[in-house]
Design a protein around this nucleic acid. Structure first.
Lengths: 109, 109
DNA sequence: CTCAACCATCGCAATATTACAATATATTAT
DNA sequence: ATAATATATTGTAATATTGCGATGGTTGAG
């Protein structure tokens, strides 16, 4: 007990849950927003801009990378992160299907 | 340490994170999918349909309700849950803004 | 009223997440 | 080679989540 029972759900449900879990933290939302604004990739600037320690930012970046949502490449002494276009498109698609499949009814209850 | 530092983020970022956290579990995704399919509200049928104990389902429903995504009403001896239309629309909107604000660039890194 | 069904809540154990200081690793500049 | 800068990793403490058995409160049937 204590761990999510992934075996009893579908691939799709588990995949979507993993992506959403990666998004479900204000720091990671903030990081993604900044990456999207400054289309050019950002890196350790984040540490100064958000109010979190370097180790914490690095950890959040790792989680986003593990979820496949961002990718990093070495840029001199720093590392440049950017959105993974393919993963983001998949996210948009699956999210659209899931969130968009709701049709408002005349008060069911 | 150990708790999310909500103070350093914006209202919007925290609100979106809360909604996404509520969605970020395969059981809750499955529950919402079932509610959306059977537009008519469902209740304890979930316990039989998913492979989780009654207490566990009840807890997941509570989290969805706390996040404001669903609402429940007494229907005889059982309880009928359904999507909260307003909250769901807000979710669609905020999610569209966030996920949709990505414009693919010519390889930034 | 009594019983059975339905659901919420409590309490617990296992596990996961969050945050950070300290340390390790890698790259650039001198 | 040395120092400085930028990240990652490790270890640790605090907190949150997940899952379930057991318990308790409601509602409808008899």
């Amino acid at each position: 007990m204590g761990a999510t029972k992934t075996e009893i759900f579908t691939e799709e449900q588990n995949r979507l849950a993993v992506m959403l879990k990666a998004l479900a933290h204000p720091a990671r939302i903030a990081i993604l927003q900044r990456i999207m604004v400054a289309n050019t990739c950002i890196c350790g600037n984040l540490v100064g801009e958000l109010g979190l320690a370097q180790a914490t930012i690095s950890q959040h970046l790792k989680e986003l990378k593990n979820a496949g949502l961002i990718q990093g490449s070495i840029e001199g002494a720093s590392i440049c992160y950017c959105i993974d276009p393919k993963a983001w498109k998949l996210l948009q698609q699956e999210l659209n299907i899931f969130v968009g499949s709701y049709k408002e009814q005349q008060n069911c209850c």
